[in-house]
């Protein structure tokens, strides 16, 4: 009978340390600001009033905000990479790489549970589940791609050493226009990622009731006592 099995004791687990949560929300802010300003830079709206050019600077300001946020985004990202080496076991770099048979199985299991909506059979880790880990690993590469292409474009208008370090990208792509094209296209990766990410957090919280959504605020998740040994 189902009822006999159903009552479980849950334990609190401190999963996301403060630096991880701080990184997450700062990253959210950066992505939002970069996305909105980036969209406006790519497709500036037409304004109806016609003052003289010296009376306003709004487009310049938007670009300035984009560049400053780009720096914040990059250093925040670099900090997260660093934390992947010194943080707790849930923040470790190896959480993002399906290196063992067991991890690959877990990834398949999560796909079954999340997409095909079967029942959970195996054990899904309490930190990033393995599928989420792999997807975040992909996002890290996209973060890097956006940072490098962004600073490569920036190198044309700045003496920033980060820009200079990324300038080699331009000849590889074959010119600023191509770099800009890809930098712009990747905006849609963030849109799609955010949709899926926010939905899946809500989904897991709703279906499992383990505090997935609130964990990024307080750091706590809940795990069945009988599964904690794993």
């Amino acid at each position: 009978m189902r009822q006999d099995l159903s009552f479980h004791n849950y334990k609190r687990v401190y999963v996301w340390e403060l630096p991880v949560r701080f990184y997450h929300w700062l990253n959210v802010l950066c992505v939002l600001v970069l996305g909105i300003t980036g969209w406006l830079i790519g497709r500036p709206p037409g304004l109806t009033s016609l003052p003289e050019a010296y009376q306003q600077q709004w487009f310049g300001t938007i670009r300035f905000v984009h560049f400053v946020t780009g720096y914040v985004f990059l250093f925040n990202f670099l900090f997260r990479l660093y934390w992947g080496f010194v943080g707790n076991r849930y923040a470790r770099w190896n959480q993002f790489i399906p290196s063992t048979r067991r991890r690959v199985n877990e990834m398949v299991e999560v796909i079954k549970v999340d997409v095909l909506q079967t029942r959970i059979r195996g054990i899904i880790r309490i930190g990033h589940n393995m599928l989420a880990g792999v997807i975040y690993f992909v996002t890290f590469w996209v973060f890097l791609f956006q940072a490098v292409t962004g600073f490569a474009l920036y190198s044309g208008m700045s003496d920033s050493w980060i820009g200079r370090m990324c300038a080699w990208v331009v000849p590889v792509f074959g010119g600023d226009a191509v770099v800009r094209q890809w930098h712009h296209a990747m905006l849609w990766f963030y849109v799609v990622f955010t949709l899926v990410h926010v939905y899946l957090v809500a989904y897991h919280d709703y279906v499992e009731g383990r505090g997935t959504a609130s964990s990024m605020v307080g750091g706590w998740k809940f795990e069945r006592e009988d599964l904690l040994g794993h």
């Binding site: 500036p44 304004l47 016609l50 050019a53 010296y54 009376q55 306003q56 600077q57 487009f59």
Partner: peptide, 11 residues
């Protein structure tokens, strides 16, 4: 260029 920074674009 000043029109670019001011966000005044030919449409």
């Amino acid at each position: 260029r000043p029109y670019y920074d001011a966000g005044m674009f030919v449409e």
